[in-house]
Design a binder for these strands. Structure first.
Lengths: 142, 142
DNA sequence: CGAACTGGATTGTAATTTCCAACTGAGTAG
DNA sequence: CTACTCAGTTGGAAATTACAATCCAGTTCG
């Protein structure tokens, strides 16, 4: 047997679906309300053919829905499914990490507004005790 | 000017650092307490040369520290810096999404234990109102 | 009417990256 | 002396990506 020892886990499985360079940026755009192919191309900078492939893959996995909004000429829009929308925590934690650790010397960050009125700054908390989670507070169960 | 319109944001910047296939898996291993090159190779399944490149890149960006723990023979260990440890929310949200949406035919092997005693299940909450964040509760500020 | 333009791709080719296997070098164990 | 380990490096094939050009079916402009 080869490949023995490779850790099978949800992290790896998730990365297989959304771990490629342009996938999460496309998801970002869809969350931001961009739904047309050409706009996603423009705002992400992705090569058109790669973006096509990524959108198809996201569709296959049920994260994205391709909706025809015009029959003649055939025109399509891309929308996140509930499954795709639930990537929000991933997007926000990525954004927050970048905000904190990479110089935002240029351009306005992507800002979400939460329904409570504040700009959304995510906190990761423990579902059991509701305290913010820090690396030093956790250990591994092998 | 070309490339006009590409959205500059923290999400893209973060993905430039940790957005490649093997980077986050290497970070996962380091969080799990794996610190030796060969072990990381074994547990992630990454090609050795690619892993070398990824670790170097993470080191460049200050997420990983390369420590020599034996001079003769020369032996090294990799450790997360505080900056690297702060990727925890990203890792946990990726894991949680996978747990929820991708068939875990073989259980969720990577489990963190929070200091409160519970298995860590992350919740993303709004730092202002402390309510869990859902996609429909947020809007975009362009 | 014809010309240019738009959205949504597909295709072809070149450049780049990835994968894999083999090899290196400095030891250590038997 | 031989085998084995760690921590990579190297070389070449295979796969993926980038980028530009093309296509098609309308729509709008003049």
């Amino acid at each position: 047997m080869q490949n023995a020892g490779v850790r099978q886990c949800s992290i790896a499985r998730t990365l297989d679906v959304v771990g490629e360079k342009w996938s999460l940026l496309a998801v970002r755009e869809l969350m931001l309300g961009t739904h047309r192919f050409d706009e996603i191309v423009r705002y992400t900078g992705a090569p058109r053919d790669i973006l096509t492939a990524r959108l198809r893959k996201l569709e296959e996995h049920g994260l994205v829905e391709r909706r025809q909004y015009s029959e003649r000429p055939p025109r399509f829009e891309y929308h996140l499914t509930p499954s795709g929308k639930s990537l929000l925590p991933i997007i926000t934690t990525l954004r927050d990490w970048g905000d904190e650790h990479l110089a935002g010397d240029d351009g306005p960050p992507v800002v979400f507004r939460h329904s409570c009125g504040a700009d959304l700054k995510a906190e990761v908390t423990c579902a059991a005790c509701h305290q913010p989670v820090r690396a030093q507070d956790m250990s591994v169960i092998s």
